[in-house]
């Protein structure tokens, strides 16, 4: 196995063009496990840790640009205010050691439906920045995942960053695991509210993401549309009153209905659907409570 260590992004892209089968590695929290378990034997590893550009946090227009090699620990420490949903999800990743090494870029590269960042990226309409010697393109998160551990990334492309709108309303993330820390998601759910619309101008007032309950991370589009319509038609954004329980209940059912779970070693399909309805209901309650408190403070 070759170990390629480019010093710059340009060198990294050239290496990837030359050796498309080379597996990029940053924190190694996924790749090394696969190698240790002998489930993967790449010809080459492409170490991105020397490429400074990939560890940068910046902004581009109204969006934050977060380098693919920024660790979960940095997201928690540096971006908790702008990206509260992603920070919450990052806190549920592995152990402190894993959070120090693991990256969202790695989550995207692995494209496992159980990756903790995916539901938030979906709920926030994040864009995945993919680069190659041919150029750079932006892929909406919703169009990035193709199947379990498969994405639309071309063989010569590297994930260089993701772009994501800073929160303009409350966000939540909740994940089910069968122990209270250091656990892979049995299922997870992310919710974002955008009372004034999205920074890029597109997308609705409600964002959702479902993890580990389908072949790919999923959006609960029906649930988003239902809730957005309910909030708008009843003037709830303006009145800021408590949500009727019928609304939170139906929202939960629609989220559960959007999932496509299976029975596996971590949990049953029936449990995943049930748990998603509960998580959707609860996270909606928490975000709506935050919104109401915020609205009152502004008034």
């Amino acid at each position: 196995m070759d170990f390629l260590r480019p010093a710059t992004l340009q060198q990294a892209l050239e290496a990837k063009a030359e050796r498309p089968a080379a597996v990029p590695i940053a924190g190694g929290t996924d790749v090394m496990v696969e190698i240790n378990f002998d489930t993967r034997r790449p010809d080459a590893l492409l170490d991105l840790n020397q490429v400074a550009e990939l560890a940068e946090i910046g902004s581009d227009g109204g969006l934050l640009r977060v380098g693919a090699c920024v660790s979960y620990a940095r997201i928690i420490g540096e971006l908790g205010r702008e990206l509260p949903g992603l920070a919450l999800a990052s806190r549920t990743v592995g152990s402190p050691q894993i959070r120090n090494r693991g990256t969202v870029g790695g989550n995207l590269g692995a494209a496992s439906p159980a990756g903790d960042a995916h539901p938030v990226l979906l709920a926030c309409d994040a864009l995945v920045e993919a680069a190659s010697v041919r150029g750079t393109r932006l892929i909406p998160a919703a169009g990035f995942y193709q199947g379990p551990k498969r994405s639309v990334l071309a063989p010569d492309e590297l994930i260089t960053a993701f772009r994501i709108g800073p929160a303009m309303g409350p966000q939540q993330f909740a994940k089910i695991g069968t122990r209270n820390a250091m656990v892979i998601a049995v299922c997870s759910f992310a919710l974002s509210l955008w009372p004034q619309g999205r920074p890029a101008g597109t997308g609705g007032t409600i964002g959702t993401g479902i993890g580990s309950a389908g072949p790919v991370p999923l959006r609960a589009t029906d649930a988003e549309e239902f809730l957005a319509a309910e909030l708008a038609s009843a003037g709830l954004w303006e009145s800021g009153v408590a949500l009727p329980s019928t609304v939170t209940h139906t929202f939960g059912e629609l989220v559960a209905g959007a999932a496509r779970p299976i029975d596996d070693v971590r949990g049953t399909a029936a449990y995943r659907r049930h748990a998603l309805s509960v998580l959707a209901r609860r996270t909606l309650g928490w975000t709506w409570d935050s919104y109401r408190k915020g609205a009152r403070q502004c008034a």
Partner: peptide
Amino acid sequence: IRGLPGGVSNTTHGEG
């Protein structure tokens, strides 16, 4: 939340 069921996975703030 570290003292609640689900722990840091943030599944309950006391509900249920």
